[in-house]
């Protein structure tokens, strides 16, 4: 009998393209002098932890594949192209070549469909994978030696409300968790987004000039840090309960549903999150964190 699959880690992995730009990987055409070290060093620490974990696939929920007609899943085994960020093309022009675990993606789609969620497999070979997926996955696994599954963000918050988003994303999380169990695979979940998400609408002449970087306003900072404290305290059900208010008050990128999806799939952890770093990027609040269900390997990082 097949071993039951499990979620071995959940990662909050923000995707500002600035972080890849600052790292200067060979895949990216733009060149930088650095920047945003607090986040990048935090990511590097988390990536090292991932190297110590036995897992089969990264499953990423991304706000930058925005679908209005249901939830979509990448459905071809390989995608190779160049991703140019439509907002920050000066920073991110990344040549990618990634593999998809189509079998797991299809299982997740089926489970979501059974739960009454509108779904679609994406099987157009010309489709360009979004930069949210690429940034988060690259920073967590720069070797790209594991397949991924990408799940689109259905825009419930905009079409209905943040409350509807919370319910729908939680249902999707439960469905994906069931599919993972049935698959027999060891899975890392990736919730790809910032916390508060108000950007500055101008950019420094040198984007990595850290003397210009700060959070957009103090209110957003206070909200972000409130959530960080609740994560440290293992109060994830409470975090999801206040998610609609947080999302509205800070224009948070949690509007996409990724965080609610991940917490639902993880069963709303009551153990402390591992905190790897918090920093602003062009005014938005970004946290790198993870949830390790294994009491023996869970760390107190920061």
């Amino acid at each position: 009998m097949m071993t039951k699959g499990e979620i071995v880690l959940g990662c909050l992995a923000p995707h500002p393209p600035h972080l890849v730009y600052a790292d200067n990987p060979p895949q990216n055409e733009a060149y930088s002098e650095g920047g945003w070290e607090t986040l990048r060093w935090g990511y590097a620490r988390l990536a090292r932890k991932l190297k110590t974990i036995d897992y089969d696939v990264l499953v990423v929920f991304t706000p930058h594949w925005q679908t209005y007609i249901g939830t979509h899943f990448l459905g071809l085994p390989n995608f190779k192209s160049k991703s140019v960020d439509p907002i920050f093309p000066n920073l991110f022009r990344f040549n990618y070549d990634l593999n998809v675990d189509v079998e797991l993606a299809e299982k997740m789609r089926e489970a979501a469909d059974e739960a009454g969620i509108i779904t679609k497999m994406m099987t157009n070979p010309d489709f360009r994978v979004d930069y949210g997926t690429i940034v988060s996955c690259h920073l967590l696994n720069p070797d790209w030696d594991k397949p991924i599954v990408t799940i689109s963000s259905n825009r419930n918050t905009h079409y209905y409300s943040a409350e509807v988003m919370n319910e729908q994303a939680a249902a999707l999380g439960r469905a994906c968790q069931k599919a993972i169990e049935k698959s027999g695979k060891r899975v890392v979940l990736v919730s790809s987004h910032s916390l508060s998400h108000r950007h500055f609408t101008t950019e420094a002449p040198l984007p990595e000039d850290m003397s210009r970087e700060h959070i957009y306003n103090h209110s957003n900072y206070v909200w972000d840090l409130k959530l960080v404290q609740m994560m440290r305290d293992g109060k994830m059900k409470e975090v999801i309960d206040i998610m609609p208010e947080f999302t509205e008050q800070t224009i948070a990128e949690t509007d996409a549903g990724a965080f609610t999806w991940m917490m639902s799939a993880l069963g709303y952890p009551d153990y402390p999150a591992e905190i790897y770093g918090y920093q602003s990027v062009i005014g938005t609040g970004n946290l790198v964190a993870s949830w390790d269900p294994n009491d023996e390997t869970r760390e107190y990082v920061l």
Partner: peptide, 13 residues
């Protein structure tokens, strides 16, 4: 380039 829509990818490139 060849563009594909996020929602209507099944209609073609």
């Amino acid at each position: 380039w060849t563009h594909v829509d996020d929602d209507f990818h099944y209609l073609g490139s």
